[in-house]
Nucleic acid binder design. Structure first.
Lengths: 200, 200
DNA sequence: TAGCAGTTGTACTGATCGGTACAGTGAGCC
DNA sequence: GGCTCACTGTACCGATCAGTACAACTGCTA
C-alpha cells in the first residue's frame, strides 16, 4: 500500500537516486515546482522506474520528507545524546555549522515544505510527524537533564522543546530570506538563554 | 516596466479581483501550485485582462506579495503606534486574534512564500523587503520606548525587532503544521519576556 | 537451460501549463 | 455624432505536466 520497496541492490540504488534527486530539487524549487520529468532527468532514471517504486508523485514526496528528516538529524548528531547543558550548546553549534558550509542555501528543507504542503491532507501529517520526531529528541534530552537534577522539576520538557524548535525554525526562515545567519545565531542564543532560566 | 496600473475604476476593480483571487489561492496552494487559469476562473476575469495588467505570472506574484503585507499590517494596527510596553502586549494580542478567527488556516502568507521563492532572484528580494517593512515598524516602536527612557539605552532596537520577528515566524510555522496556536502563544510570550529583560 | 520476478527503455496519452493574437466593446471627450 | 483608448471575450499555440502501455532485459534459481 505504501511506497514500493526495492528488493534487489540494483533496485535500491535506483530508488535512492530518484529520492535523492527529488530531495535536492524540491529543496530549491518546492514540490509543485519540481516535475517528475526533472527528477528523472537529474537522477538518470526512466519513468518506468519511478512508477515502479512510487504509485504517484505524492508518494515520492512522502519519501522525500523522510529523507529530509534523516539528513537533518544526521547533521546534528549531538541531539541523540543530550545529557548536559554543554551538550545543548554543542547541538546549537552543530545546527549553525550545517548552514555555515558554503554552497547550500540557508534553509530547513522541512520548513520550506511546511508552507507549501501545510494544508495538504496527505502530506501535512507527514511533515508534522517529522517535526515531532525531531522535537522528541530535544525533549528526551531535557528530560535527562531534569532527571539528573540539572533542570527545574517544575519545567515542562515538551513545552521547552517546542519553544526551542520555534526558535530554530523562525531563525532559519529569516536567515534564509536574508542570506545571513545572524538571525539564526541570535534566535538560538535567546532560546538557550531561555532554557538556562530553568537551570538547577 | 513595472506592473501596469489600472486607470479607470472599472479596470481597478478587475485588477483587484485578480490580485485578491491570486492571493487567496496562493495562500493555500503556493505559487507554483496556483495556475493563472485557476486565478482567472476564481476572479471571473479573462486572460486578456490578466495579461493587460501584468506582463507575466511573476509580476502577478509581486502584486500578491504587496497585498500580503497590506493584509498583515492591516490586521495588527497596533504596530503603527507602539509607544509603551502595554502597546507591545496589545500588538501580540492582535497577532493572536488574527489566527483565532476560525476559517482561515493558521499561517503567515509571507512565511508560506518564503520557503518556495526563497531563492528566486526576482521574488526573494520582494519577500525580504516585505519582511523588513514589517520589522521596521517594530523597530520604530522599540526606538520610541528607548527615547522615552523605558528601554535600556544599550539595547539595539533593530536586533530586538529581528528577534521578535523570528519568534513570530517560528511560532506561526509550528502552529500552522500543528493546527494549534499554542506554539505561537508561547513564542510570543517568550519574546515579550526577552524584550522586557531590557526594560528600564 | 529454462523460467521467473524484479527491473528497465521508449513511446505515448489527455490534460494543463504560461502566454499570444486579435477582434471586438464600453465610456468619456470634443 | 464620432474619435479614442482603456478594457474585454474567445480562440488558439507549443511546451510541459502526471501518468500509462508494453516490450525487453537482468540476474537468480532450479
Amino acid at each position: 500500500m505504501e511506497t514500493q520497496a526495492a528488493t534487489t541492490p540494483r533496485g535500491k540504488r535506483t530508488r535512492d537516486a530518484i529520492v535523492d534527486a527529488a530531495a535536492a530539487l524540491m529543496y530549491v524549487d518546492g514540490v509543485a515546482g519540481t516535475s517528475v520529468d526533472k527528477v528523472l532527468a537529474a537522477s538518470g532514471a526512466g519513468k518506468s522506474q519511478m512508477y515502479h517504486y512510487f504509485k504517484n508523485k505524492e508518494q515520492l514526496v512522502e519519501a522525500v520528507i523522510d529523507r529530509y528528516l534523516e539528513q537533518i538529524l544526521g547533521n546534528q548528531p549531538a541531539i541523540f545524546t543530550l545529557a548536559s547543558w554543554a551538550d545543548l550548546e554543542t547541538w546549537t553549534e552543530q545546527l549553525l555549522d550545517i548552514h555555515r558550509r558554503a554552497g547550500a542555501p540557508i534553509a530547513c528543507p522541512l520548513g520550506n515544505l511546511a508552507g507549501e504542503v501545510g494544508d495538504n491532507p496527505k502530506l501535512a501529517p507527514l511533515v508534522d510527524r517529522a517535526y515531532r520526531t525531531w522535537e522528541s529528541h530535544l525533549e528526551r534530552g531535557l528530560t535527562t537533564l531534569q532527571d539528573k537534577g540539572e533542570l527545574d522539576p517544575g519545567a515542562d520538557p515538551a513545552r521547552l522543546a517546542q519553544a526551542a524548535m520555534t526558535s530554530v525554525q523562525g531563525g532559519l526562515l529569516l536567515a534564509h530570506i536574508r542570506h545571513d545567519l545572524t538571525a539564526l545565531e541570535d534566535a538560538l542564543g535567546i532560546a538557550l538563554a531561555y532554557l538556562r532560566g530553568f537551570k538547577r
